[in-house]
Computed example of a mutant assay.
Amino acid sequence: MPSGIYRSAKIVWDYHLLHQPLVKSDCLFVLCSNDIRVAEHAAQLFLQGYAPYIVFSGNVGDITQGLFPCSEAEHFANIARGMGVPNDCIYIEPLATNTGDNIIKTRLLLDAKQLNPQRFILVQKTFMERRTLATFEKQWPNKSALVTSPPLMFDEFANDVISYGDLVNVMVGDLQRIRYYPALGFSTEQTMPQSVWQAYQHLVAVGFDDHLSPDLPRD
Results as ranks from 00 to 15, higher is better:
Ser71Tyr: 00
Ile103Arg: 01
Thr148Cys: 08
Gln65His: 12
His75Asp: 10
Ile178Thr: 09
Gln194Asp: 14
Val147Cys: 14
Phe136Trp: 06
Phe127His: 08
Val168Trp: 12
Leu167Gly: 10
Asp62Gly: 11
Val172Pro: 00
Val206Asn: 04
Lys113Tyr: 14
Asp210Glu: 15
Asp174Met: 07
Ile121Tyr: 09
His19Trp: 12
Val55Ser: 04
Ser57Asp: 07
Gly4Ala: 12
Lys105Asp: 03
Phe208Gln: 05
Ile11His: 09
Val123Ile: 15
Arg130Thr: 06
Leu216Thr: 06
Thr99Lys: 03
Ser8Glu: 15
Ala42Glu: 10
Ile92Gln: 03
Ser195Gly: 07
Glu93Ala: 01
Ile90His: 04
Lys138Tyr: 13
Ser25Lys: 01
Cys27Arg: 00
Ser187Pro: 12
Ala39Gln: 05
Ala134Ile: 08
Leu212Cys: 03
Thr135Val: 01
Met128Glu: 10
Glu72Val: 05
Gln124Leu: 11
Val196Gln: 06
Asn78Met: 10
Phe46Ile: 03
Tyr6Ser: 06
Ala73Cys: 12
His211Ile: 08
Arg7Trp: 14
Leu22Gly: 05
Ala51Tyr: 06
Arg177Tyr: 10
Pro2Asn: 14
Gln139Met: 15
Val147Gly: 07
Leu110His: 00
Gln65Cys: 10
Arg130Val: 00
Val206Pro: 07
Ala145Arg: 12
Tyr15Ala: 04
Leu212Tyr: 03
Leu17Glu: 04
Asn142Cys: 11
Pro182Asn: 10
Ala96Gly: 00
Asn159Cys: 11
Asp160Lys: 05
Cys32Asp: 04
Thr188Val: 13
Glu72Tyr: 02
Pro150Asp: 09
Thr135Asn: 06
Ala9Val: 04
Phe157Arg: 03
Asp88Phe: 15
Leu115Pro: 03
Val147Gln: 04
Cys27Glu: 09
